[in-house]
Computed example of a mutant assay.
Amino acid sequence: MRRIDTRGRRYSGHGRGGVLADHDEWIQECLIQSEGLLDVKLLRRLWATMRELPRGDSPDVMNHGDLLPGNLLVDHGRLTGVLDVGGLAPADPALDLVSAWHLLEAGSRQVMRNQLGTGDEEWERGKAWAFQQAMGAVWYYVDSNPAFSHMGRRTLERITAHSI
């Protein structure tokens, strides 16, 4: 998707894909709602660092914006399709790296990173975008969609294991 021409368009200011610190209000709501579900003290410390990550000077690229397991079709361990592309829009190139944290264990994440040639700053922002998304999934879907809540929890476990 990164190869699709943005035709000069830039991030619109809505949803994910701009500046991480712009999501402070959402993360604070997630932290409050996650008391008793997650280690909020640890997650609050992680966000304090993540929110400060610089956007960098890399130009916006076309992004799916929601590369979660349910939006990817896999056959015999190979990606065969991507669903829900209605939100395809220009954004921070790190945004689509959320898939590394939602889908892959450490070794596979490293392979993906190497294949993409992703630098440290972009990789850390990708991890932060995954954190931002996963924080809402855990508490919001804990009763209505337990599998999705579990996906968020697993993502946060991967992030915290990599951050401690």
Rank of each mutant, 00 (worst) to 15 (best):
R153Y: 11
S163A: 11
G65R: 06
G18R: 09
G126L: 07
D5P: 12
H23F: 04
L97D: 03
G18D: 02
T6W: 03
W123A: 05
P69R: 04
Q33H: 13
E29H: 13
M50H: 07
H23Y: 06
I27V: 12
R158L: 04
H162T: 09
E105A: 04
S99L: 08
I159C: 10
L46V: 07
D84P: 00
W26M: 13
A48Q: 13
I32H: 13
H76T: 11
P54M: 07
I164G: 12
E124L: 15
L67M: 15
R153A: 13
M62H: 04
D143S: 09
G136Y: 13
S34D: 00
R10T: 13
P146E: 03
L83P: 05
A89Q: 11
S34A: 10
S12G: 10
T49Q: 11
L46G: 04
T160S: 15
Q110E: 15
T6G: 02
Q110C: 10
I32P: 00
E122M: 14
D24Y: 01
I159P: 05
A161I: 03
K41R: 14
F131N: 03
M62E: 06
V40I: 13
M151T: 06
L43Y: 09
G87S: 09
S144P: 01
T80W: 04
D60A: 08
N145P: 00
L31V: 02
L73W: 01
E157I: 03
N63D: 05
F131K: 06
A91S: 06
E29T: 11
I32R: 14
Q115L: 11
W26G: 09
A91Q: 01
R153Q: 14
P54D: 14
E52V: 01
L20M: 05
L103E: 05
G70R: 08
D96C: 04
T49K: 11
P90C: 05
R55G: 08
K41M: 14
L88R: 04
H76C: 15
G77Y: 09
Q132Y: 03
Q33I: 00
L72I: 14
V61C: 00
D75S: 14
G17Y: 00
V142T: 13
